[in-house]
């Protein structure tokens, strides 16, 4: 994730900028705390964005941590061991699947969308057999029916098709 950090920093800086801009539109009392936090955040995110373009500065400030530097070092080592060239691609794929789940929920609702998502996920992503691919979604359907509809009577989102 060579550019990930820089993109995130810029995004956070823009978020802080928009936040402060919007904060100034409120009267004195409501804007007090948002600006007390937003203005320092603008400087912090701006500073982080700048130093990220200069590796020696970035390294210097990354070591400014107070108590958990050793912990971070431990984590960094373990992450290096697991590094896989396609790691980022595989991880981002998970978010595409999440996107599909949300789309199915939006269209079919939670009760039908979630089991269908599990079925599609098992069949297409992991090419599992019919027994598992059908039993897990059906189990989910049953649990949701008993727990949310029968026992607790919680109104689940019905989706655009059924609403």
């Amino acid at each position: 994730m060579k550019w990930g950090g820089k993109i995130l920093n810029i995004a956070l800086f823009l978020f802080a900028l928009g936040y402060v801009w919007q904060g100034f539109s409120y009267s004195r009392t409501p804007r007090l705390f948002p600006l007390m936090v937003g203005i320092p955040m603008l400087f912090l995110t701006g500073f982080q964005t700048v130093i990220d373009f200069f590796p020696h500065l970035s390294k210097k400030y990354a070591e400014m941590g107070t108590l958990d530097a050793e912990m971070l070092a431990g984590r960094a080592k373990s992450e290096v061991k697991e590094e896989d060239p396609k790691r980022t691609q595989k991880e981002l794929e998970a978010f595409l699947w999440l996107g599909l789940a949300v789309a199915l929920i939006m269209i079919l609702g939670i009760f039908w969308g979630i089991p269908l998502f599990i079925f599609v996920f098992l069949k297409l992503r992991y090419a599992r057999g019919w027994v598992l691919s059908l039993s897990l979604p059906l189990g989910t359907l049953l649990v949701m029916y008993i727990l949310f509809i029968k026992v607790f009577q919680i109104p689940l989102y019905k989706g655009l098709l059924l609403e």
């Binding site: 956070l12 978020f15 955040m41 400030y61 971070l72 070092a73």
Partner: peptide, 16 residues
């Protein structure tokens, strides 16, 4: 305390 290595990043995270 819970910030990890970079104090600035911890403060940004808390600020968000």
């Amino acid at each position: 305390v819970l910030g990890g290595g970079s104090l600035i990043k911890a403060l940004i995270s808390g600020g968000i």
